[in-house]
């Protein structure tokens, strides 16, 4: 651990942890002051206060077309977006690791089958898969998560397969095999810990990808909920002339989060593999 943390990791983690703090603060606020995290979670509507400009009438960032405070819809959107993307990325990564491992050690049928499925999902434009899946599952939170996991796991599976192939023939894995470590234990205690650092990089970058895809679906009216930043942006764009501040604050907040994640991901990659850092 003598390697120095690079600038990207520092800036990225500062940005990211401030967003996380913001989301946690919002959840605590909505749980204790509003009474529940989910039900009255959505900001209060007051039609008389629609499109108040930032800074006036006590609204720091103004209000939207339904008279909701922009600060509150941003916070609700942040909590939602982070929740969905973490859930999707962690699930996809777990599926990816398991399938990647099985496609190296499993029987030929698993190898060929997983290869075909991965290639197929890769070759399909992912937004079309998501649209198709959402049309089957309906537009709900779980439908959205399912759609994003389906398009997400093949990427992780490819990386996990490559890493497993590299590791599986190394001496320490071989010796673990030789002393008769059961397959499951080998997977959990030897393979997974060795793959994990590289997977972390891709999970961080994957989270930013999921945030964008989720918002894109929300923007097209296919999101799982109205908390989605994408859904808010599609409302904001209709009042671009009257209330440009909405598009600008929403985009800036979203971009800040994505920049933080991308910086952290890039920085971690350079940190883990300095050979590839330029």
């Amino acid at each position: 651990m003598s390697k120095k943390m690079n600038k990207e990791i520092k800036i990225g983690s500062i940005l990211l942890s401030s967003y996380l703090l913001w989301a946690v603060a919002w959840l605590i606020y909505s749980y204790f002051i509003r009474g529940s995290i989910t039900a009255p979670y959505f900001p209060v509507t007051d039609m008389t206060k629609e499109l108040v400009f930032p800074g006036s009438e006590g609204f720091i960032l103004g209000t939207d077309i339904y008279g909701r405070s922009v600060v509150e819809i941003l916070s609700a959107g942040l909590a939602y977006s982070l929740g969905v993307s973490l859930l999707v990325s962690l699930t996809s990564a777990s599926i990816g690791i398991i399938i990647g491992y099985l496609s190296v050690t499993g029987s030929n049928i698993i190898k060929i089958g997983s290869d075909l499925v991965i290639n197929l999902i890769f070759i399909f434009p992912s937004i079309l898969i998501a649209i198709m899946v959402m049309s089957v599952t309906g537009q709900s939170f779980w439908g959205l998560v399912f759609a994003l996991v389906i398009t997400g796991w093949p990427g992780y599976a490819r990386i996990a397969r490559g890493e497993t192939m590299r590791i599986i023939n190394l001496t320490y894995v071989e010796s673990a095999r030789a002393v008769g470590v059961p397959e499951l234990r080998l997977f959990l205690k030897v393979i997974v810990p060795s793959i994990l650092p590289l997977m972390m990089v891709h999970i961080v970058l994957g989270v930013s990808g999921v945030i964008i895809s989720e918002a894109a679906l929300g923007f097209l009216g296919l999101g799982g909920s109205e908390y989605s930043w994408g859904a808010m942006l599609s409302i904001a764009k209709t009042v671009l002339l009257e209330a440009p501040y909405m598009v600008i604050t929403l985009s800036a907040v979203m971009a800040g989060l994505i920049i933080g994640l991308n910086l952290l991901g890039d920085g971690l990659r350079d940190y883990l593999d300095p050979r590839k850092s330029f």
Partner: peptide, 12 residues
């Protein structure tokens, strides 16, 4: 630029 998705870049 990579951090502004198309649907927020376009309105801006």
């Amino acid at each position: 630029f990579l951090s502004f998705p198309i649907f927020s870049l376009a309105p801006i």
